[in-house]
Design a binder for these strands. Structure first.
Lengths: 218, 218
DNA sequence: AGAACAAATGAACACTTGTTCATTTAAATA
DNA sequence: TATTTAAATGAACAAGTGTTCATTTGTTCT
């Protein structure tokens, strides 16, 4: 009977554990990690603070769990379900897909909170920087740079520095996502920024693609 | 003699006031505003905490003063000393100047700290968002967009959406500045990012400029 | 030198913080 | 039903927080 804990249904306990994570994320993203108290978290769920310690060793462990969850978050797995060897054939539609994903994620509450948490803590938390670097930068920017290289070899796009191109493609998306977050905080209209996601891809693709004809009309 | 305070030399008192601001900025940028205690600040200067209150009403006022100083910081006044009506004639060299300024600011300690403080607090502090919006976004992005419009009229660059162009120009610079900050935190090499500042301008200008000849060789 | 004043000190305050723990409650197991 | 186990509670603690204030220090002006 020493394996009890391995096959317990976790039916009720895990519910509050999930609640703690969900509410903590929201609070951390809004007020910041340090400014959020364990009483805030417990209060927002409707339990007493001491109950938190049945699920997490301490406040830090809540943050660490959220950070670990970052590795499986959507923004970090843009290419996860795509077949790497065929990606470069898609051309513009691949890029448009990425931009649309970015745009949609800006308006997904869970992901918006993760983004804000990331932005606020990345300068203080080395672990977050590691995850950002490994999972966002390496997995997305570096991978896209490889795709661009393949596109150049097949003469789909003009040849230039693939890593520069990948940065040029991602940085506006990142910037626009941040703009949306900031505008929403003040309940301002995001429509002008939203349209930039697609405009960026159009502009970008126009610049990199191999011109098929010599005609220069728009 | 009721004007004494107006013409006092401020010789000694203002020195510690400056010290408080300088050390606070460093600490806020490193640990975050909330995690920095008044004892931290006083300790880093070498005075007792109670002495702080001779210069600032409270901890919040220190942050507010730093935020107000943002309006006169370098990143926010890129065009301040330029003559607006003639800017668009400069073309590529104007853009290269801006990129170089960004690059240099990434390595200026004072400005790096301001950037980190901005990034960490902008999601929590409406005043910072206001300043960011008015002084960075309006003053730089919107202004550059006006310059691009003028360039289009004079057929220096291809005609397209000037605001999109301004965003495309600024967002990589912003992104690279953040990358440099993050790399420096972990004492990693920044050289690969540093070269992107200039590469970006070359790439950008190549894409927007009016082609003088029909020849398409690079 | 003496008066006036700004700045620094030391000690204390009221309050908030994260965390612990004995106890109660409730559910699962045997 | 009785037993075991997990989860929630209430109360408390020790440490850390921002801030106040009477007092001392040191400088400036007359």
């Amino acid at each position: 009977m020493n394996e009890q804990s391995a096959n317990t249904p976790l039916s009720k306990g895990s519910k509050t554990k999930e609640k703690i994570l969900k509410h903590s994320l929201k609070l951390f993203a809004t007020k910041g990690y340090k400014a959020t108290t364990v009483r805030d978290i417990a209060g927002s769920i409707g339990i007493k603070q001491s109950a938190l310690y049945n699920h997490f060793k301490n406040k830090d462990e809540i943050l660490e769990t959220l950070i670990s969850d970052l590795t499986s978050s959507a923004i970090v797995t843009l290419f996860a379900n795509k077949d790497a060897s065929e990606l470069h054939k898609d051309g513009k539609s691949l890029l448009m897909g990425i931009a649309t994903t970015f745009k949609l994620l800006s308006f997904d509450g869970q992901n918006e909170a993760l983004f804000k948490l990331l932005m606020q803590e990345i300068f203080r938390n080395e672990r977050i920087r590691e995850i950002y670097n490994e999972h966002f930068y390496q997995e997305n920017v570096k991978k896209l740079s490889g795709i661009f290289f393949a596109m150049m070899q097949e003469e789909i796009i003009k040849s230039s520095d693939p890593l520069l191109l990948a940065n040029e493609f991602f940085s506006p998306l990142f910037f626009y996502q941040m703009q949306v977050s900031l505008l929403k905080l003040d309940k301002k209209s995001t429509s002008s920024v939203v349209s930039l996601f697609e405009k960026h891809v159009e502009y970008f693709w126009d610049n990199v693609r191999q011109e098929k004809t010599e005609g220069l009309f728009q």
